[in-house]
């Protein structure tokens, strides 16, 4: 089915205000983030498949229901990838809606910047286009940013145009008991620097010649070749980069942890305590949600303010 037809069918399935509560199901790999959908909610699925891919453009247009793995398989044939990550089975739309970054953010930036153009179904059942297909664009308001991490509460994503990047020529993990702050300050654009209070791990990516040179530097700092960190603890704390680098090594409330240095995500064994709301932000959130979905029919039960 041509994707424009698939998008129209998707919009029809979602229906208008009278069609009741509806939630969009991707791989359901992070189904409870921000709360599970309300029990009486009708499930819909977004279109699947790659619509167009122009490797020389470094953009790909893909149905939101496509799995990240399927997308990346296709891109890998042209030695490209996107910044999207997720558990096995996770979809493009799901990853964008949840808005969680992968481990390589330090080098490649946040995933919120990957979405160039979105086609989504509004609460009224209309197909809406946000953003544009080119890698640079400041035409109109940047609605794409709003949809990343919105858990589908502002519109149901049907199709996305994403920025791709070249796959690195090589990558390598290093690890050891070096001063984590010195490591972070010494390397130029590592893909990740992780720390558990004792051990520091570094992921290097890029041309072989760079990884070799930075690998030698890692050696001088006391890090050796490594398989990378052990499995990440289950809970996700969001902190500032400075706070992540001084996370209490006695584990405090977090239990054993692995911190993403330079980024601020801390993978901890216990959930993060609730944070105080920021000035003026809550009311703006409510007004936005009301503007886009006056009857709260899109993904009811899921709250972007409560993402843990």
């Amino acid at each position: 089915m041509a994707l424009s037809t698939a998008l129209e069918s998707f919009a029809e399935e979602v229906g208008g205000i009278d069609a009741g509560a509806v939630c969009v199901r991707g791989g359901a790999t992070r189904w409870a983030v921000g709360g599970a959908p309300r029990a009486d909610t009708r499930e819909v699925r977004a279109p699947r498949g790659i619509v167009s891919y122009e490797p020389a453009e470094m953009t790909v247009q893909v149905g939101a229901g496509t799995s990240i793995a399927e997308l990346h398989d296709e891109l890998a044939a042209h030695r490209q990838v996107t910044v999207l990550e997720g558990p096995a089975g996770a979809t493009v739309g799901g990853a964008l809606a949840v808005g969680r970054n992968g481990l390589r953010r330090l080098r490649h930036g946040p995933m919120r910047d990957v979405l160039l153009e979105a086609r989504y179904v509004s609460a009224e059942g209309r197909l809406i286009k946000a953003g544009g297909p080119t890698v640079k664009n400041v035409t109109g308001f940047d609605l794409c940013r709003l949809h990343v991490g919105a858990l589908g509460t502002l519109g149901l994503l049907g199709q996305a145009t994403l920025r791709t990047r070249p796959l690195p020529e090589t990558m390598a993990w290093f690890g050891g008991a070096a001063d984590h702050r010195v490591v972070l300050g010494s390397l130029y654009r590592p893909a990740a620097v992780l720390w558990d209070g004792l051990t520091t791990w570094v992921l290097l990516e890029g041309y072989g010649v760079d990884v070799e040179a930075e690998g030698l530097l890692c050696g001088r700092l006391g890090l050796g070749p490594s398989d990378g960190p052990p499995e990440l603890p289950a809970h996700r704390w969001t902190t500032s980069p400075a706070d992540a680098a001084r996370f209490p090594t006695d584990h405090g409330d977090a239990g054993p942890f692995i911190a993403e240095l330079g980024v601020g995500i801390v993978h901890a064994s216990q959930p993060q305590p609730a944070q105080p709301p920021a000035t003026g932000r809550h009311e703006l959130q409510q007004r936005l949600r009301h503007e886009f979905d006056p009857t709260s029919r899109l993904n009811p039960g899921r709250d972007p303010l409560g993402r843990e």
């Binding site: 953010r105 940047d142 500032s240 000035t279």
Partner: peptide, 24 residues
Amino acid sequence: SRAMLGDLTAEPAGYDLRGVFVGS
């Protein structure tokens, strides 16, 4: 009134108000 959009944490809760404000 005043509001703080975004903060220094890695993944601020809620909508990316910072993102839609930039370029407005």
